[in-house]
Design a protein around this nucleic acid. Sequence first.
DNA 1: GCTGATATCCCCCTTTTCCGGGATGGCGGC
DNA 2: GCCGCCATCCCGGAAAAGGGGGATATCAGC
Lengths: 250, 250
Amino acid sequence: MPIPGAVKQLVRIAQEVETEQDLEFAMAEVTRELGFRYYALSHHVDFAATPDRATRLHNYPESWQDYYDRHRLGVSDPVHRASHVTSVGFCWSRIPEMIALTPADRAMLSLGRDQGIGNGFTVPAHVPGESRGSCSFASDAGGATPAHIFPIAQLAGNFAFEAARRLWLRRGQRAVVGTTPLTDRQRDCALWVARGKGDWEIARILGVSEETVAQHVRQACGRYGVNKRTLLLVQTLFDGTLTLTDIFRR
Amino acid sequence: MPIPGAVKQLVRIAQEVETEQDLEFAMAEVTRELGFRYYALSHHVDFAATPDRATRLHNYPESWQDYYDRHRLGVSDPVHRASHVTSVGFCWSRIPEMIALTPADRAMLSLGRDQGIGNGFTVPAHVPGESRGSCSFASDAGGATPAHIFPIAQLAGNFAFEAARRLWLRRGQRAVVGTTPLTDRQRDCALWVARGKGDWEIARILGVSEETVAQHVRQACGRYGVNKRTLLLVQTLFDGTLTLTDIFRR
DNA sequence: GCTGATATCCCCCTTTTCCGGGATGGCGGC
DNA sequence: GCCGCCATCCCGGAAAAGGGGGATATCAGC
């Protein structure tokens, strides 16, 4: 396992890289050293719509990026979706165990193979309140996947993403998310809203009147500047006021 | 750098560990091998309030855990808060550059030192929709911090947290994700529902009639056995059919 | 040629949510 | 003492969602 050289390179990426060109060069080098052919380091957003609000570096074929953007795969790519259900890197062959694949997903994956992209390894990168991202390494279609190197790829992906994120933060606007913007009671109501309860039912559970619940829900919506309980739900999940774990536990 | 042995151990943790005792033993071993004294692997929740809904493993002194729980530090611990602003592990000495420390934070850190906990390294672990978590390694107060080993600690933290998370998921029978994906059209509608659109508006966007949208939403709800669009939203987020990134893109 | 899944459209009726107004009492800061 | 924030309660009308019943057309697979 050619670890020491790779690790040295990774540390350099993490700490010293100052420009995107620098990072691209380092990524190409690390990718080669790990026995992969491609790398892709990006936020999971629609780049055609938001070209400069996110980070993307890769050495995939041009044609693949075009296809990717045209179909807005930044947000629906099954590799990205799978990276949202784990905290550690995963081999692409495990994706079907991780998420439910739609026919469109299968079509996309097979088209990727047609374009020369084989099996790969993706490291998720999530910072609460920021767009999710990941760093992937892939081999040529038909080429061998260097599975023994996955732990080092994990490390490489971690440091590489953080390096890209550092450049991104320096370059522009950071979306700093505040602390909990809801009162305790508003959060209680939001939690039961998330559990699918109606105002009447929540009133029963909390031991207050239906109007009070409606009022809390209204004001919670007001805090986020939204006008629907579905959006209240999305906002509370987004900023961590609620988590899916909160919602499912009893 | 004693990498190969540590890496081998890490891979074992990641893949083979079947019980918490197993994981505790492996963590103790890795901690020692990396030159640290303590480890702590936990979700960032208030354990006094939710004793068995989250994961926590550590070999800190008992007295420290008592203090921790009494003050509900699981959610306000500055180490945890710092781990929410990065995607990669960090040395505790860098915390003041990462977050604003309150007097209470400083008091807590100094008390930690009194209890024998020195400098440390913390690896964040975030899975969208789940409680945030982290894996920390710390040396004895006054002892040297094995800084050269940070990259390997990063890797150890990643794999260790995921191993703990795997056990946690298994314990709660949460890993089994529904095998009933939505049709493409149902997913389209669910996405716009998640964006807070009404049926009429979605009909406009998709170029179909309002009744058709209502029908797709109804049937999507049927797939998950729920009867409200808020619950449809929760379910699609839970099984990865939709992600918060999907919802916010555009 | 049939069946099942998908996607589209229509009507009617009930329940729930949303939105604009209110009101009261408590508590903490200035 | 006043002001702002929080929690509680109330009303009425407009809008949306939920739930039941239908229908037609396409397309894939057997």
